[in-house]
Amino acid sequence: MIKTLKNNKVSNHLMLIVFSLLMLYPVIWWVGASLKTTAEMSSPSIWPSTPIWENYTKGWQFSPEFTFGRFFGNTLLMELWNVVGGVLTSAIVAYGFARINFKFRGALFSILLLTMMLPGQVTIVPQYILYNKLQLMDSYIPLILPHFFGGGAFFIFLLVQFIRGIPRELDEAAKIDGSSVYGIFYRIVLPLIKPALVTVAIFTFIWSWDDFFAQMLYLNSVGKFTVGLALRMYVDQFEIQWGRLLAMSLLSVVPSVVLFFFAQKQFVEGIATTGLKG
């Protein structure tokens, strides 16, 4: 019995290691390519003949005025607001849709879902004109604000599904103990959907990191650029500074990886703290 369990463990590890390596091939390629000269990029070998560390140092030293430190600072600050806004408001809105019967709930929920189905390409220009009229150009507000309004249909719907997975008897028990709907939300539901909230935080972070189109439209001064925008400056019409581009893009993934690494521990803790009874 113990032996098969052990074997099981070993084979599990083996499988996971092989699978991880397969998925990690891009990193290996990426690290190698980020140390190459542009002329060497075309060679099939993964590793450079002599590593060009300059891609990192010069790449970081973006221009005489700004380093990538500035861009990371800008992006992380924006992200902090996005994540706080997204996690906070999406849970509140989701609870309303999932647990409370109010007039026009069905209709409003359908509208919520419909807003996801219209491709953003056709609303972005009217939206830009709107923000332009509000004189919010060259600021992070147009980028952050939507996260404070429920964080978008995706997250609201996600949390609605999670909240509906929580046994109602918990609500009822709390109600008997004299809790209001607000109390139930805060003391019962919120702790129970922690894994889902962590998911919201991770996705908000990663997706706003990637959302270059809106950033490009709303940020004008280079001093306010995000990492994503700064990276795009390395891609000229004819000449791409491949070494620096790849080096800095690799660095730009690091915050997301670190965040994910630490945040996903919450999934493990998730079980311990919920302690649901069937």
């Binding site: 972005i124 220009v125 830009y128 004109i129 332009n132 150009m137 189109f213 490009m216 439209l217 004008n220 001064s221 280079v222 925008l229 795009r232 400056m233 390395y234 891609v235 000229d236 019409q237």
Partner: peptide, 21 residues
């Protein structure tokens, strides 16, 4: 001044034109 690389430049310009800015 406002400056960027080729791709982004031509992506941004139509939107600026649409908002008369």
């Amino acid at each position: 001044p406002e400056y960027m690389a080729w791709d982004d430049y031509w992506k941004k310009l139509p939107t600026l034109a649409a908002s008369h800015s």
